[in-house]
Every structure is written in C-alpha cells, then in structure tokens.
Nucleic acid binder design. Structure first.
Length: 274
DNA sequence: GTGACCACCTGGCCGC
DNA sequence: TGCGGCCAGGTGGTCA
C-alpha cells in the first residue's frame, strides 16, 4: 500500500524515464479513476502536453505540464508501468498515456481505488485536494507546538490521528505503527494526553522512519511495487508491523495485533505503555 | 466541530 | 475442487 516513501520512489523512478515525453493520446478504460474534470476534458487537455516535471505532495504524485498538473493518488494498489505500445493491455490497466515515441505509461490498479485530478497549475496548493493536506514530515514548521495545538482537542487514539493527512501528510498504516513503536507510545493513547516529549518523539521518528524507508525504496507488502516492478526493501526493516506473535526486537515480548479505528495495528505491550 | 461507520474494490486466504 | 465469507486499507461521504 503506497505511503509517502513508496510515492517518492515512484516519482524518482518515473522522473528518470518520462520527463519531457509528449502525450499523443490518453485512453481511460475505467472512468471512475478520473475524479475531475470529466473524462472527455481530461483526455482533451492532456493531448500534446509535455511532462515538464514530477513532484510529490503527501501521497499525491504530481505530473507537471505547462498549464496543467495531473495529480494521481495510488491509494491501495495503484502502480505505473512504462511499456511499449504493442504490449498487451491487461485487465487491471485503467488509464493509458500514449507518448509520441511509441512508449506508454500505464496506470494499473487492481482494486480501482486510485484517483486522478487534472488541475490548472497556478495556485495548485490552494486547490482541492492539496489544500486539505497538512505539513510534510520535513517541513520546518512541523514543531512540538504545532502538534500540541492540533492534538489538544482530539480525543481519538494517536494511531488514528497519525493517519489524519490534514495534520502530517504522508503517514499510512505501516509507518504509523513503526513511528509509535520507536516513540514508545501505545497506539490507543488518547491524542490530547500526549506530552511535549512524546510529540517530539513522534516528529523525530516520523522523519527517521520515512527517510530510512525512502533510502530503501519503500515497503513491499502484499501487492505493492513501484513502477518498473521494482520492490522496496523496507519491509525487512519493519520492527512491529506485520510481526504479530513474534518477539519484540527490544524486549522480546510477543508483538500484539489489535484494531484501532478499523485498521490492523501492531505494537509491543511492554515497550509501548498507555 | 468531532467521531463513528460505511462504501468503494478485488485478490488472497481460510474453512467447510 | 469449489464455494462462500472474511480481510486487507486510504479516503470521502453521511449521519449522530
């Protein structure tokens, strides 16, 4: 499931291969992927446009053109593959960007959860959906006082709030578990009761976990892989996520799995006390 | 404003 | 072997 490190990996991989390619034609085979504008307008506006840059904001992948920017959210299982025009289209490839040079960028999404927006590039940060995002983990304004302010009215478990993209953007279920483990915070701890020290730990470990994951190309769990079919290696560095019943790497107590806000959550009952 | 719940989707897994 | 049911989870919408 692509989170910030996986999207960053996809962005960097695509950047090497599709920058300055010009779109000849776009084929939308599953219309619901296109959230805005209409499919007809989406296809028309992208024709003859050149990809000038690739960016990322939170979990959103951004294809920058001269006047427009294409936002793509991979959600659970979205992937991009660069293929030749002659290659057979499989049933999970829902949006196909055909380039002038005969290659194609294909958006594959088994579960069809991914969404794309085509927006005017000017003031894009002020437009939906980017205007609803919180701070990037490396934003200098992500401070203890920022978190304390955001958390002070939240009575939800910290695990749930870490997944709230309007506070810190880019954290998903896997990394939330890892961040809380390293911060020695119980996933069910009520957010408004976090101390300054705990907020500081969350900020520090958010950065370190995501940096480490990016350096290893993200995490490959279940069906996620980046473009080119590249598998991330961070799953070998996961300390608690997906390790139910195994020994905690610190105290050797058995890792427990619970549900928090409907999400599978892994933690060590000894290292992470409420 | 806040929080709980559900729908969107399909493939993998498990039990019968 | 085949079938049904459950689970995985990011996000947006609805409702209390």
């Amino acid at each position: 499931m692509p989170e910030l490190p996986e999207v960053e990996t996809v962005k960097e991989t695509l950047k090497k291969h599709i920058l300055h390619k010009k779109i000849k034609r776009v084929d939308v085979r599953y219309p619901k992927i296109i959230a805005s504008p209409s499919v007809e307008e989406f296809v028309t506006r992208l024709k003859n446009q050149e990809i000038l840059d690739m960016r990322r904001r939170g979990k959103w992948l951004m294809f920058v053109f001269k006047e427009d920017t294409l936002l793509s959210h991979l959600r659970m299982e979205g992937k991009f593959f660069l293929k030749e025009h002659e290659e057979e289209i499989n049933r999970h490839e829902h949006v196909i960007f055909e380039f002038m040079d005969g290659t194609e960028l294909r958006y594959q999404d088994t579960r069809k959860f991914g969404r794309m927006y085509l927006l005017k590039s000017d003031d894009i940060e002020k437009r939906k959906p980017l205007n609803e995002l919180g701070l990037e983990p490396w934003d200098p304004t992500l401070t203890v006082s920022y978190l304390k302010e955001k958390y002070k009215t939240k009575r939800l478990p910290i695990k749930t709030v870490l997944l709230d993209q309007s506070i810190i953007t880019g954290i998903g279920n896997i990394y939330a578990d890892e961040i809380l483990f390293l911060s020695h915070i119980h996933p069910l701890k009520v957010c408004s009761k976090l101390t300054k020290k705990e907020c500081e730990q969350i900020i520090d470990h958010t950065k370190s976990v995501l940096n480490h994951a990016i350096s290893l190309g993200g995490t490959t769990i279940r069906s996620y892989e980046s473009s080119e079919g590249v598998h991330g290696r961070f799953q070998h560095s996961l300390l608690v996520h997906n390790h139910e019943g195994e020994a905690c790497p610190v105290c050797k107590k058995s890792i427990i799995k619970i549900k928090v806000g409907g999400r599978g959550t892994y933690y060590c009952p000894k290292c992470q006390k409420k």
